Simulated scan of single mutants.
Amino acid sequence: MSFLDIAKSRYTTKEYNSDKQIPDGKIRELKEILRLSPSSINSQPWRFIFVSDEKVKEKLADASYWNNQRINEASHLIVFTAIDDIKYFEEQIKENLPEGYVYYYNQFLKPKGETEVKSWLQHQVYLSLGFFLSACASMDIDSTPMEGFNNEEYDKILQLNRYKTLFAVAIGYRNPDDNNQPSITLKSRLPLEQIIQSI
């Protein structure tokens, strides 16, 4: 299947088949794909938490407002977090990145201040989201990206230290009756001419 066909068939899943779990081999593959996600200056300011334990999933679902059902039905919930401790981040890049990359950070990003740096760190995690959703679709795994939950409660449940929850993705296999799938409800997108400009 071409990537265009994948893009046409991928959708945000609203109902999952709770009896069907993603095989361990595919989960290992998704973990490696996330590890290989792109980020500016290869900064990698993230941690991805794969949750399959039903008790932990239930707690997170309870803190997820209208996304509660999807999380409970899904095979796994992946929580995407960003480093929230700038000193810790600076130690990480000093240990792992080439000197030129660290120089770029110190000269062009750090002077902008803590708020701007944290925003930049979080933007890198959002880059990994697109990578991850595309990977899931290419592996016939359904997904639901979500921001509709209590982030602070997620941080407590997952006992995060130096990291902060940004968003999560439920993954699994769709319920055949899910009305949101393109074969039942056509995708709604703006016309290409309205959003693409060629110069």
Score class of each variant (00 low, 15 high):
Lys164Ala: 10
Asn161Pro: 02
Arg174Asn: 04
Arg189Met: 08
Tyr163Val: 07
Thr185Tyr: 02
Asp178Tyr: 01
Leu166Pro: 05
Ser188Tyr: 10
Ile171Trp: 00
Leu192Thr: 11
Pro176Ala: 06
Ile171Val: 14
Leu186Val: 12
Ala168Gln: 10
Ser188Glu: 15
Leu158Met: 09
Gln197Glu: 11
Thr185Ala: 09
Pro176Thr: 03
Leu166Cys: 05
Ile196Lys: 09
Arg189Gly: 05
Leu158Lys: 05
Ala170Asp: 11
Pro182Ile: 05
Ala168Asn: 10
Tyr173Thr: 03
Pro176Cys: 05
Ile184Lys: 14
Ile157Gln: 08
Gly172Phe: 04
Glu193Val: 02
Leu190Val: 07
Phe167Tyr: 15
Thr185Val: 04
Leu166Ile: 09
Leu186Ile: 11
Gln194Ala: 13
Pro182Met: 03
Gly172Thr: 03
Tyr163Glu: 10
Ser188Ala: 12
Ser183Phe: 00
Arg174Gln: 09
Leu158Phe: 07
Ala168Tyr: 09
Ser198Ile: 14
Ala170Ile: 06
Gln181Glu: 07
Asn175Trp: 02
Asn179Pro: 14
Lys187Thr: 03
Val169Ser: 03
Gly172Met: 00
Gln159Ala: 15
Ile196Arg: 06
Pro191Leu: 07
Asn180Arg: 06
Phe167Asp: 00
Phe167Trp: 04
Pro191Ser: 05
Leu186Arg: 10
Ile171Gly: 00
Ser198Tyr: 14
Asp177Ile: 00
Ile195Asp: 02
Gly172Asp: 05
Asn175Val: 01
Gln194Lys: 14
Ala168Gly: 13
Asn179Cys: 08
Lys164Trp: 09
Thr185Gly: 02
Leu186His: 10
Leu160Ile: 10
Tyr163Trp: 11
Leu186Ala: 15
Ser188Asp: 15
Gly172Lys: 00
Glu193Cys: 01
Arg189Ala: 08
Ser198Trp: 12
Pro182Phe: 01
Ile157Gly: 06
Tyr173Phe: 15
Lys187Ala: 08
Lys187Arg: 13
Leu192Met: 07
Leu192Phe: 13
Gln197Tyr: 12
Asn179Leu: 14
Pro191Asp: 12
Phe167Asn: 00
Ala170Phe: 07
Leu158Arg: 03
Gln181Asn: 13
Asn175Ile: 00
Glu193Gln: 11
Ala168Ile: 06
Gln181Ala: 08
Thr165Cys: 10
Leu158Glu: 10
Ser188Gly: 11
Tyr173Asp: 02
Ser183Asn: 06
Leu166Gln: 10
Thr185Pro: 01
Arg162Phe: 14
Asn179Ala: 14
Leu158Tyr: 05
Leu166Phe: 04
Asp177Glu: 15
Asn161Ile: 11
Asn175Ala: 06
Asn161Leu: 13
Glu193Ile: 04
Ile171Ser: 00
Ile184Glu: 08
Gln197Thr: 12
Asn175Arg: 00
Pro182Gly: 02
Ser188Met: 13
Val169Asn: 02
Leu166Asn: 12
Ser198Phe: 15
Leu190His: 11
Lys164Pro: 07
Pro191Glu: 13
Leu160Trp: 14
Tyr163Cys: 07
Pro191Asn: 12
Pro176Arg: 04
Ile196Ala: 15
Gln181Trp: 02
Asn180Pro: 01
Asn161Glu: 15
Ile196Gly: 01
Gly172Gln: 01
